[in-house]
Design a protein around this nucleic acid. Structure first.
Lengths: 121, 121
DNA sequence: AAAACGTTTCCATATTCGTTGAAATATGGA
DNA sequence: TCCATATTTCAACGAATATGGAAACGTTTT
């Protein structure tokens, strides 16, 4: 992954609502999730949601497709993987032993924590 | 790593100059690097640099110590590692096979690419 | 065709961000 | 003490960001 794309991806995820959105899409899996469902789950206004989807899409983290009158958004796992690789490489330069050890390689099992704090506003 | 810290770290790295700064510090290793050296290498004004250092420090990605009249900044590898773990966990929920495979675990060897585009302005 | 539904576009607003120039602060040396 | 060096603080600015309301758009149902 090239630096500008990495910056774009980081910026896209560096916002509470967008990170929540992305998490939800990751949880939803490759089939994705309708915009309206995301709006309901997270308590976001539809236009605000569109704004954030645009950013995620521009960063290549998400894809859209139409299905009936719904827009289905889905996480691009490949992009996320690229980002993690980018960070790992740029984190471990010159001191591989200090960073990204076995910890991140062990399958940790599905973790939850978020998504229970929806309907904030 | 808790979500708000992750967002802070992502935001801190989601900016060209700051990402370059952090990379430079990673390259410099645990002993760190004087603010002035970073300014020289990247061609940034000292006050601008202070601004970015503050953000990196606030996000826990960097530490400072005084040494003579220089301020030595150093990357906090632990924080970076936490961030990568956070992303990996939040990326792979429900579909471990799709994301963060062996690729990121293989030591890829030291990569360069940046730092040669300094003195932009 | 009309109405309902799901989403996006447009416009406005308050806030945050990145950068700059000038002045202030802290340390070390003559 | 006076001066140079290294960095931070302060005030200001334009640009980008996040959000909201109202209207428009495309699709399905009737």
């Amino acid at each position: 992954m090239e630096t500008p794309n990495a910056v774009a991806a980081l910026a896209a995820l560096a916002q509470d609502n967008r990170l929540d959105i992305f998490r939800l899409l990751v949880e939803a899996g490759p089939e994705g999730m309708a915009a309206g469902q995301v709006a309901d789950k997270l308590g976001l206004a539809p236009n605000t949601l569109t704004f954030h989807f645009d950013r995620l899409r521009f960063a290549g983290l998400v894809t859209v497709r139409r299905e009936g009158r719904s827009m289905i958004y889905a996480a691009r796992f490949e992009a996320m993987n690229d980002l993690v690789s980018f960070l790992t490489e740029n984190c471990c330069q010159g001191s591989q032993e200090k960073c990204a050890p076995a910890a991140i390689c062990k399958p940790t099992g599905v973790r939850h924590e978020a998504v229970s704090r929806a309907r904030r506003r």
